[in-house]
Simulated scan of single mutants.
Amino acid sequence: MKILYFGGQKSGKSNLAEQKTLEISSKKPYYLATYDNSFNDKEMHKRIDKHKLQRKEQFTTIEESKDLIKVLSKSKKEDTFLVDCMSMWLFNNIKQNEEYLINQLEEISKLDANIIFVLNDVNSGIIPFDSESRKFVDMTGIVGQKLAQICDEVYEVKLGLASRLK
């Protein structure tokens, strides 16, 4: 089963995705953390620490910022993964072309494991002035569409409430 939770910043998507992951897993699930710690961003470290406290010891954490296939391709049918978050994965791979990103998602779609994805919704605002930000917003939309296509369930999250779209 593949599931997508998407929403704005601090919408509650990670919390709901964690709950769903624990609900559907038959054994201790994996938390695939995509943040690249090389940025030395203190505010992001606080966010990460909060996520770690929230999930306690209920997950086995694996850190992989760029190559999801490297981790997920080793999965077994009974495995469950929470990928938090696809926006960070996209940011870390922003120099890659669209084909590379879509190919990774297509490979992931073929895997016989439960995978829950978290994605930030950044496509409802204005068109950014700089080209890098525009590329990130555009690619977030493209990646989001591909994830929605390959997922069995899709939830939009606002104010901690999930609306099922698929």
Rank of each mutant, 00 (worst) to 15 (best):
G141L: 10
M139R: 13
I108F: 03
F39R: 07
F81I: 04
S11K: 02
F117I: 03
M139L: 15
K110P: 00
K20G: 00
T34P: 12
C151Y: 10
R134F: 09
Q9K: 14
M1G: 13
I102D: 02
H45M: 14
K166W: 10
S73W: 02
R47H: 12
E57L: 14
K20N: 01
A113M: 03
N103T: 03
S65W: 06
E23Q: 15
V137W: 07
D138L: 15
I102Q: 01
K135W: 09
F39M: 04
T61G: 11
F117M: 03
I94D: 01
G125S: 08
Y5E: 02
S124T: 12
M44N: 11
G7P: 14
D112L: 05
N114M: 03
A162N: 05
K76D: 00
V71G: 02
S25N: 06
N40E: 12
K66H: 08
K76T: 02
E156V: 14
S124R: 15
E43N: 15
P29C: 10
K166M: 04
F91L: 13
T61N: 06
K28I: 11
Q19D: 01
L119G: 06
L111G: 10
T21W: 07
K95T: 12
N92Y: 13
V157L: 05
E64D: 09
V83L: 10
E156T: 13
T61L: 04
E153I: 13
T140F: 07
L111S: 11
L159E: 06
M44A: 09
K146M: 04
R55W: 06
L82I: 08
M139P: 01
N120T: 14
S14F: 11
I126M: 08
I102T: 07
P128E: 01
N97T: 10
M1F: 05
E18A: 05
F117S: 03
Q9T: 14
L22E: 02
R164Y: 02
K20V: 01
T61V: 15
V122C: 03
D138T: 15
E18H: 09
K28L: 07
V154H: 07
L105P: 05
L101N: 03
D49P: 04
D138K: 15
G160S: 09
K166V: 08
T140R: 02
S65N: 13
L90F: 11
R164S: 13
L72Q: 00
N93P: 07
L165S: 06
L16A: 00
S26H: 11
I115E: 01
N15W: 07
N92C: 11
D41T: 13
Q104W: 00
G141E: 07
S38I: 09
S14K: 07
S109F: 02
Q9W: 04
K20D: 00
V157C: 10
K56R: 14
F117W: 04
K10A: 13
K42T: 13
Q54G: 08
E106G: 01
K110H: 06
S38N: 14
M86D: 04
M86Y: 12
L159R: 10
T34Q: 03
D138P: 08
Q104N: 12
N37M: 04
E156P: 03
F39L: 09
N120E: 09
S124W: 12
I115G: 03
C85N: 15
I62R: 02
D84Q: 14
E153P: 04
K146P: 11
C151P: 11
L147C: 09
M1Q: 03
Y100M: 01
K66P: 00
G12V: 05
L68K: 01
K77P: 05
L72K: 00
S109T: 03
